[in-house]
Simulated assay, not measured.
Amino acid sequence: MMIPKRSIAIVDDDGRVLESLANLLSSFGYHPRPFTSALDLLAADILPQVCCVITDREMPLMNGLELLAHIKRSEFPVPVIIITGKPSEDTELFYANQGAAGFLRKPLDWDSLYCLLQRWC
């Protein structure tokens, strides 16, 4: 099956976040591809067909930073935007140094997300 070019993979273990982001991305004109885990995303083998990945920082089995590192090493190093709802000392500079295309705290600022997506998709 061919996936539209403006497809964005969303990875979050919280179904409410997945649904909310998918609805938002659809309203922006993108084609969301939701996944409940990083491993599910990788198993789907769609990295060559997405323009960006939005992933939660904290998830079981493989967290967002581990997914970012995996994607950077892959044959298809698409941009990765990290989102998190956990307060921490991590900053945008920290995530940029890890290779993230962007970093946003939950609840997400929709305008900031849209601006990031305009750079990559």
Rank of each mutant, 00 (worst) to 15 (best):
C115R: 15
C121Q: 05
L24M: 02
C51H: 04
T91D: 03
Q118D: 11
L25Y: 10
E89R: 12
V80K: 10
D109A: 11
S7M: 06
S37H: 09
I71F: 04
D40V: 00
S74N: 08
A69F: 01
I71K: 04
L25R: 03
K72E: 13
L25Q: 02
L24H: 02
D40M: 10
T91G: 06
S37M: 02
D40I: 00
E92R: 12
A43N: 10
P79Q: 07
R105A: 10
Y114F: 10
R6W: 01
D45I: 00
Y114Q: 15
A69W: 02
L104W: 13
L42M: 11
P34A: 06
L116F: 14
W110I: 13
S74A: 08
E89N: 09
P32N: 02
R33D: 00
D45R: 14
L25A: 07
D12Q: 10
E89T: 13
L65W: 02
C115H: 13
K72V: 00
T55V: 01
R16Y: 08
F76C: 12
K86S: 04
S112F: 00
D109T: 03
S74H: 07
V78L: 07
S20Q: 06
F103L: 08
R105N: 05
A100Y: 11
M62A: 05
K86W: 02
I82A: 07
V50F: 06
K72I: 12
L18W: 08
F103R: 06
L25V: 01
R105Q: 12
P77Y: 10
E58T: 10
S20M: 11
I3V: 11
P79G: 05
F94L: 05
P48N: 11
V17R: 02
L24V: 01
D12I: 03
K5D: 14
N97R: 12
L61P: 00
L93A: 13
V17Y: 00
C51A: 12
E92Q: 13
D90F: 14
